[in-house]
């Protein structure tokens, strides 16, 4: 077995120190070593985005990064997004706008959406769809995900938002 490497990572505000095998992917470090199973694995070719987390302020696919690469980094996972029992506006948007069905893609979608809104607080529908190209959802057909992100964007800009309503 290859020599283990000592890493120190801050995950959701908690500092962790572990000896890891170099080949352990960040996603399995989070899921299996730390028990943070909200980050999912949906593919083996880095396409689906179910594993998206935030590393040092940017969204990354945690299946396409080794845990050793995160040494010294700050990681936020879906479990760390809500603050003081309050949902992040993107989480709230997904709930209000029915932006999820089976919920498997949802943690990754939400983390990607947070990244988008950090970079662009007022995205157009086209920009939202473009920004989601690394996240696959098989259930929703994406429309309500787009609405959820628009809801969150408005809320983050301090504009009024409306909750769950049907389309017609």
């Amino acid at each position: 077995m290859a020599e283990k490497v000592r890493i120190s990572v801050n995950v959701n505000g908690v500092q962790h120190e572990h000896e890891v095998e170099p080949r352990q992917l960040l996603v399995y470090y989070l899921r299996e070593t730390l028990g943070l199973t909200g980050t999912h694995v949906g593919c083996d070719t880095s396409q689906c985005g179910a594993c998206t987390v935030n590393v040092d302020g940017k969204a990354v696919k945690s299946c396409t990064m080794f845990a050793v690469q995160a040494d010294g980094s700050r990681v936020t996972t879906i479990e760390g997004l809500a603050k003081d029992g309050n949902y992040h506006p993107v989480q709230e948007g997904f709930w209000e706008k029915h932006g999820l069905q089976c919920g498997f893609c949802t943690p990754g979608m939400i983390m990607a959406a947070v990244d988008l809104l950090n970079k662009n607080p007022n995205p157009s529908e086209g920009e939202i769809r473009h920004a989601l190209e690394g996240n696959l959802c098989r259930c929703t057909g994406y429309q309500n995900i787009v609405l959820a992100i628009q809801y969150a964007a408005a809320k983050l800009r301090g504009e009024p938002v409306t909750g769950a309503v049907a389309d017609d």
């Binding site: 880095s46 985005g49 998206t52 940017k58 969204a59 990354v60 696919k61 396409t64 990064m65 990607a112 990244d115 988008l116 970079k119 473009h130 920004a131 989601l132 190209e133 690394g134 996240n135």
Partner: peptide, 12 residues
Amino acid sequence: IEQIGDPMVRNK
């Protein structure tokens, strides 16, 4: 560059 992969790919 905007046309490469997706935002997560471009972040890394």
